[in-house]
C-alpha cells in the first residue's frame, strides 16, 4: 500500500506553502529504505510496487514535464503515486531505466540542468510511457484542489454566494 504521510514535526500545509514561497527553491528528494523522502518539507512516499529510486525519478520527470517552481514536490508525488501499482510497475521501471540510460553515468536525476533533462524527454515524447505520464498529469496534477490556491484559482463559489459581492468586477488597473 502506498501512503502519503507527514513525518517529523508535522508541518502544516499553510506552513509548507509559506516556506516554499519564501525559499523559492526546493530541497532534493532523498531515497531512503522503501520510501522517497522530502527532508525539507517533512513528507515521504513509501513505495511497494516500484523501487523508491524509480519513484523519485518519476517525480522529477513529472516536474520537468509541467514545471511550476512555486509548486512543492508533494503535488507531483501525489500525481505520480498511482504508478506504484503492480500492473503498471513494469512499464514505469522500463521507462525510467530508459531515461537513466539516456542520461549517462549519473542517471536522469544526476543531470543538474532542467534543459538537459528536457532534451531527453523531447526524444521520448512520442512513447506510450511519456504520453501516459503527461496525459495523466492533466488531471492528476491540476485537479488537486489543494493546488488551486497556489495559482490563484478559488474553485467552488456557489456556497459563498458567487462573486457578486466578492470582486467579480474589482479590477482597478485598467
Amino acid at each position: 500500500m502506498v501512503t502519503i504521510y507527514k513525518g517529523g514535526e508535522g508541518i502544516s500545509r499553510r506552513h509548507l506553502f509559506r516556506k516554499v514561497g519564501e525559499a523559492g527553491a526546493l530541497a532534493a528528494l532523498v531515497v531512503s529504505g522503501g520510501a522517497v523522502i522530502s527532508p525539507g518539507h517533512a513528507w515521504g512516499l513509501e513505495t511497494k510496487a516500484l523501487k523508491p529510486g524509480t519513484m523519485a525519478t518519476l517525480i522529477q520527470m513529472a516536474r520537468d514535464v509541467y514545471p511550476h517552481d512555486h509548486v512543492p514536490d508533494k503535488f507531483y508525488a501525489i500525481a505520480m503515486k498511482g504508478y506504484d501499482d503492480p500492473e503498471k510497475a513494469a512499464m514505469v521501471e522500463a521507462g525510467i531505466a530508459d531515461l537513466d540510460a539516456r542520461a549517462g553515468a549519473e542517471g536522469y536525476r544526476g543531470l543538474g540542468w532542467e534543459d538537459d533533462r528536457v532534451a531527453i524527454l523531447r526524444d521520448i515524447e512520442d512513447t506510450p510511457f511519456f504520453q501516459a505520464v503527461r496525459g495523466g498529469m492533466v488531471t492528476g496534477l491540476y485537479n488537486q484542489k489543494d493546488l488551486w490556491p497556489l495559482f490563484g484559482y478559488e474553485g467552488e463559489s456557489y456556497s459563498k454566494g458567487g462573486y457578486i459581492d466578492r470582486g467579480f468586477n474589482d479590477i482597478e488597473w485598467l
Binding site: S157, Y158, G161, G162, Y163, I164, F168, N169
Partner: peptide, 14 residues
C-alpha cells in the same frame, strides 16, 4: 438573477 458565480458551463445552480 445571476450571482456572478462562474461555472455557467457546469449548470447554473441559481
Amino acid at each position: 438573477a445571476c450571482q456572478q458565480t462562474g461555472f455557467c458551463f457546469q449548470g447554473c445552480k441559481w
